[in-house]
Amino acid sequence: MSQTASPAPMYAPVFPARSEHHSVRGLRYHFLVWGDLARATDAQPLLLMVHGWMDTAASFQFMVDALRAQPGWAERPIVALDWRGFGQTETPPATDSYFFADYLGDLDAILDQLSPGRPVDLLGHSMGGNVVMLYAGVRSERIRKLVNLEGFGMPATQPGDAPQRYIKWLDEIHKPVRLKDYDSLDAVAKRLQTTNPLLRAEFAQWLAQHWAREENGRWVINADPAHKRPQPFLYRVEEVNAFLSRIACPVLFVEGAQTLYFMFFDGKFSREEFLQRVALVPDFRLETIDQAAHMLHHDQPEALAAHLAGFLTT
């Protein structure tokens, strides 16, 4: 008689977060909070963390547990958010697509609420890393130190690309869009491990319950399907470079040694081009973590925590 394999043991957070909701630009935003925000000081400010595309705030739990073990981090306030239309944050009404500027607008409003009058340490992963770099180019006074985890940017576009991008966008908003659902939480965990073979089984089991929710006997991804639609706007490198050159706070960029990020662009964007862009940032350092890929906060949270503590601890 064949037997179905039992799910892997589930990770148990060492420092569980508490869940909070706040109104941000008319949306009910969800936050995970570790510690007391009132304990923030100039030397130990709030650490605010923002996730990447198709991810959630819970993605940072493993890294927070490792960071809490670092000297001076036992009680420092830490917050992670769910971007609009992800996780438990509300989806804007009648939304058929998302625009990048809104992430900067949301971030600005969130800092007004969480840390008025005091700069924060700001961390972003992937898409979130791109958001915080642009934000630092216009609001550096609100950031003490910035950490970018694999937010490399995108290939340059040309003016001649614009008409076709708008055609594609117009076509896409006429089509229904959906995300794949799953028959069990274990299937969601296996999907996460398929996407990232470096993800530990117990981490995948724990993440699955935050990455998806049960509806009518199926497990549905906690994300608005409209996030899959492309944006029509060009990625203008000249504009991005203008942002980068204005960043006045120290920046730490952390990459995974096994990242496959640049392979997805068929030679249209290289690590060398990325290095040319970030050379414009006045105070920039790059560090690499071995045995880690794009989701390095999942792959090597302990090593990443050591890098963060070394950079963020005054």
Rank of each mutant, 00 (worst) to 15 (best):
S2Q: 13
A5E: 15
M10K: 14
P13L: 01
P16N: 03
E20D: 13
H21D: 13
F31T: 07
F31L: 15
V33G: 03
D36C: 00
A43H: 09
L46I: 01
L47S: 01
V50T: 11
T56C: 12
A58W: 02
A58H: 11
F60R: 02
M63L: 15
M63A: 15
A66V: 01
G72C: 07
W73E: 08
E75S: 04
E75F: 06
V79Y: 01
F86K: 10
G87F: 04
Q88L: 15
E90C: 04
P92T: 03
P93S: 14
P93A: 14
Y98M: 03
F99S: 07
L104V: 08
D106C: 09
L114D: 07
S115N: 03
P116W: 09
G117T: 10
P119S: 02
V120A: 02
D121S: 00
G124C: 03
G124N: 06
H125E: 06
H125P: 07
V132N: 10
L134N: 13
A136C: 02
A136E: 03
G137C: 03
V138M: 10
V138K: 08
R139P: 00
S140T: 04
S140G: 08
K145R: 15
L146N: 05
L146D: 05
L146W: 03
G151Y: 02
M154T: 04
Q158V: 12
P159V: 00
G160F: 10
P163H: 05
Q164H: 13
W169A: 11
L170D: 11
E172S: 14
E172A: 15
I173C: 09
I173D: 10
P176E: 09
P176Y: 07
D181T: 14
S184K: 11
S184T: 08
A187R: 05
K190T: 13
K190N: 12
R191S: 13
N196G: 10
L199S: 05
R200L: 12
F203D: 09
A204R: 08
A204T: 00
Q205W: 01
W206D: 01
W206E: 02
W206Y: 07
A208Q: 08
Q209E: 10
Q209I: 00
W211N: 14
A212G: 07
R213Q: 15
E214T: 09
E214G: 12
N216E: 13
R218Y: 11
A226G: 04
R229K: 08
R229I: 07
Q231I: 03
Q231S: 12
F233H: 10
V237Y: 05
E239I: 12
A242S: 09
F243T: 06
L244W: 06
S245N: 07
R246Q: 14
P250L: 04
F253L: 07
V254S: 00
G256I: 01
G256F: 03
G256T: 02
Q258E: 13
L260Q: 11
Y261R: 05
M263T: 08
D266M: 08
G267A: 03
S270C: 05
E272W: 06
V278D: 04
F284M: 14
R285W: 07
R285P: 05
R285S: 12
R285E: 14
L286F: 09
D290P: 06
A293F: 01
A293G: 10
A293S: 09
H294W: 04
M295N: 15
M295A: 13
L296G: 00
H298A: 08
P301S: 07
E302Y: 04
E302A: 14
A303Y: 01
A303L: 13
L304A: 04
A305R: 01
G310E: 03
